[in-house]
Amino acid sequence: MGNLGQPGNGDSPAVSVHGLRKRYGDVEALSGLDLTVAPGTVHGLLGPNGAGKSTVVRILSTLTRATAGRATVAGHDVAARPDAVREAIGLAGQHAAVDEKLTGRENLRIFGRLARLGRRGARHRADDLLERFELTEAADRLVGTYSGGMRRRIDLIASLLRAPAVLFLDEPTTGLDPRSRLDIWAIVRELVAEGTTVLLTTQYLDEADQLASAVAVVDRGRVIAEGSPAELKARIGSHVDVEVGGEADLAGAVAVLERLTGGRPAVEDLRIVTGVPGRAPSVPRLVRELDAAGVAVQDVGVRRPSLDDVFLTLTGRTTGTGGADGGATGMRRHDRAKEGATA
């Protein structure tokens, strides 16, 4: 089936953002955000609710103008050449932006015609995309009867009508069940394999981990850390939780944990929590080694870093709360993060 994406031209960035600011009245949604997205990659914008992710996407897709700063998409300035930008992009936002009173196929045909594909072109493109993304069966049912996952899928497909060079996905899987989330992930992977550049916002570290080759962590309108998912996770590390059978087992368990993780175990009653820089040993290995050392174990768990852990580490705050002077902390952490990435 036809190629969906157009490869980005050469090495020039698909998206380039400098000092982007956006004010809504008293709220500063973006306060000097920088971002560079390499062509043909998935770039993740990771951040909690209200961080400014959607604002970035809205500016880049020409829905909103920035208060200050510069941004180009596919080589075109978003403020000066919005028409050229619109020719090059696809947008799938936070809701399923489709007409519920039409069928999936009708939606694609109508949007295809409004996207200047022509009547015939829109019809063929709609049929191709429906077949390719396995929505043919539901294609002639009203979108109002679709499940949440199918709605997102038809919405995503509607953003592909013009085979965009750059695709913006704003929290494409928020609120979806795990199965539907995998479906969306599969589509994104396929598109990128064909050369489409994707800027994806998400609140989930594992989503960024699964899809993105580079991640920018956004907090309060600026990027506080950047790097590959592996680099970010390595900086944050994971936690190994062990609960032993009795006081007598503590010393032996601590020794095993020190040896296996290189971290410093913290003991609290019968629980031992060990912060691990980088990769944690697997649970079976932990159980085996603790067993071999003759330690009676109640429970063993490895906690992968969540977005909350990333935040806690980078800002000293959890995602939900808004502590004082977080911005300054964020800057300092960012500097350190950069050193870490180059070291």
């Binding site: 619109r86 020719e87 809701h95 509607a158 953003s159 013009r162």
Partner: peptide
């Protein structure tokens, strides 16, 4: 409300 308007505004229509 559905985001359909934003979709149209992001297209070369």
């Amino acid at each position: 409300g559905r985001g359909v308007t934003d979709r149209l505004r992001s297209m070369p229509t």
